[in-house]
């Protein structure tokens, strides 16, 4: 395997104006503008091998998108270095651009009023594909994404899900070696999310392309990314396997109990998440799990007991709300 992305202490800070509310503040801001510096990304270092699928996790404004933009050449960093496919991305060398693609969930590059196929045709010219290459790749994508009858429709007549499929197809016509996907499933319904996910997985397997993905939906990351990178307040907090992330940050375990008779109060054992008839769910600190389990088995008549990690969404949520420094 070869390294395709190498980042060393990459940083980005912005200077933003500050303005108060009200007539007076607007008049004052005519004369002098106050500014402050926001550090969006602080000294992030990592490297990615060819063919990897890496998920970027973090709350809004954590610096995920900024990082992705620097790697795809849209933003110049204020510090550090990055090398993508051997290029310095922000030089935006055409040979570099021909090998990458960027998909942003909430933006579109297809032309609104005309049929999808004509937007594709534009990309054919921009990426200088021969007609045969274009034909071949188009057929492949049409089959994989089931675009068939969508191609002749104007973009404005497509549903959000259909449009996203077409956006993705447009972004892949030139067979990029690196895919930057920024919230690709944003706003899609669950089944469409799943289909897009499956497609990305297939595409990665078939072509060996490297995929960098940010998403709000843990399901995306869980299904696609063996490796996750957690960014919070612009800092890299974790880089490794998803399972390790859970092990490292999940401070609690979930106990699911099936009792012989419904019990009145379980709060002496831990935090009660739900209790319905004879079925109850408790949350206990990880280091106490063994001890609490023993106590429960001793004091209650238990039919069934199950110990599990909490859902990954919750772990992530905890990580971010605690700041985890």
């Amino acid at each position: 395997m070869s390294t395709v992305i190498e980042i060393d202490r990459l940083s980005k800070s912005y200077v933003v104006p500050v303005r108060g509310a009200g007539v007076r503040a607007s008049i004052v801001s005519l004369v002098k503008r106050k500014t402050r510096t926001v550090e969006a990304v602080k000294e992030i270092s990592l490297s990615v091998e060819a063919g990897e699928v890496v998920g970027f996790l973090g709350p809004n404004g954590a610096g995920k998108t900024t990082t992705l933009k620097m790697l795809s050449g849209l933003l110049h960093p204020t510090g550090g270095t990055a090398s993508v496919l051997g290029f310095e991305p922000w030089k935006r060398n055409n040979d570099f651009l021909r090998q990458i693609t960027l998909v942003m969930g909430q933006r579109n590059q297809l032309i609104w009023d005309i049929p999808v196929i004509d937007s594709f045709d534009r990309n054919r010219v921009i990426y200088r594909l021969t007609r045969e290459e274009y034909r071949e790749r188009l057929d492949e994508l049409v089959e994989l994404l089931e675009l068939g009858e969508l191609l002749s429709k104007p973009v404005r007549n497509l549903s959000l899900g259909e449009r996203m499929k077409c956006e993705v197809a447009a972004a892949l016509l030139h067979h990029p070696r690196i895919l930057f996907l920024d919230e690709p499933t944003l706003g899609l319904d669950v089944s469409m999310q799943r289909r897009l996910r499956t497609f990305v997985e297939q595409y990665n397997k078939r072509t060996g392309a490297t995929v960098l993905l940010t998403s709000h939906y843990m399901a995306d990351v869980e299904a696609l990314c063996p490796r996750v990178v957690v960014i919070h307040h612009g800092e890299l907090l974790f880089d490794g396997k998803l399972a390790d992330l859970v092990r490292k940050f999940s401070a609690q375990k979930t106990l699911v109990l099936e009792l012989e008779e419904s019990q009145e109060d379980l709060s002496r054992f831990g935090q009660v998440v739900s209790q319905e008839g004879s079925r109850a769910t408790l949350r206990v600190p990880k280091q106490d799990t063994a001890e609490v389990t023993a106590r429960i088995l001793r004091e209650l008549k238990v039919q069934d007991l199950n110990v599990a990690d909490p859902p990954i969404d919750e772990i992530i949520d905890q990580v971010f709300s605690r700041g985890m420094a």
Binding site: K69, I100, M104, Q109
Partner: peptide
């Protein structure tokens, strides 16, 4: 304003 210009910049032209 909408940020769609980002797409233009990722094109090799």
């Amino acid at each position: 304003v909408t940020g769609n210009f980002d797409y233009t910049l990722t094109k090799p032209a």
